[in-house]
Amino acid sequence: PESADLRALAKHLYESYLKYFPLTKAKARAILSGKTSGSAPFVIHDMKSLTEGEQFINCRQMPVMEQRSEFGHVQESASEVELRFFHRWQYRSAEAVREVTEFAKSIPGFVSLDLNDQVTLLKYGVIEVLIIMTASLMNKDGMLISYGQIFMTREFLKSLRKPFCEMMEPKFEFAIKFNMLELDDSDMALFLAVIILSGDRPGLLNVKPIEDLQETVLQTLELQLKMNHPDSLQLFAKVLQKMTDLRQLVNDHVHLIQLLKKTEVDMCLHPLLQEIMKDLY
């Protein structure tokens, strides 16, 4: 009966993962390997294709002033294009934070935690979750963006000016190793919940109920990995080890963003991302 409860939890979290996250790993892998019936993604590999591909970028959240005017074809410098692309990226990230928040709220027991602790768990967990989810969209040559409509090459991201060029490379390195574990979407749902329910985030008021919730999800993840990957030795331990790398990645990411804020006078950070990154590490 206890294992039946854990299976039910795994099913529930997988269902809410499918409900809140628009691009699953299964779908992303199909697009990346060219196995979808739809059209192939638009490839951005240089400044010219970036300018052309902007029309495909899903930017529901962009303020009107950010949209290209009818005079958009007047000479634009590469740095303007880079900056505008970064803005769009940010708005998609803020939308992704909202998706992760809805997913967190669907974890049984999460909304009963102290509201301040819910905020702390999200503040510290959300970038880790987004990095893990981005790994699903990456291969060694590039990554899908805009809900899978665009493939942006790794070389192009590396060619941007400093410090933009340094933003994604560590995530690619992480993703290539993480993807070797071959987790599927149902495993990912549980792993993301484990990350969110970390009882050691700074400033938590009431750690015990968080640890209790995490313990149940950890047992579920362990059982799930044994059943889903019977031949993969020590997979549970390997997955948990990734949590250490993630913290370092987030730390480096936040420092890069802080550097950007100093060097790019025209850059304004989305208010939600500001809230999350302020005094994070």
Partner: peptide, 20 residues
């Protein structure tokens, strides 16, 4: 609480889309 206004709002509003 003021420091994390939007996060609070995202957590407290149920499924309705939040103006980010």
């Amino acid at each position: 609480k003021e420091k994390h206004k939007i996060l609070h709002r995202l957590l407290q509003n149920s499924t309705s889309p939040v103006d980010l």
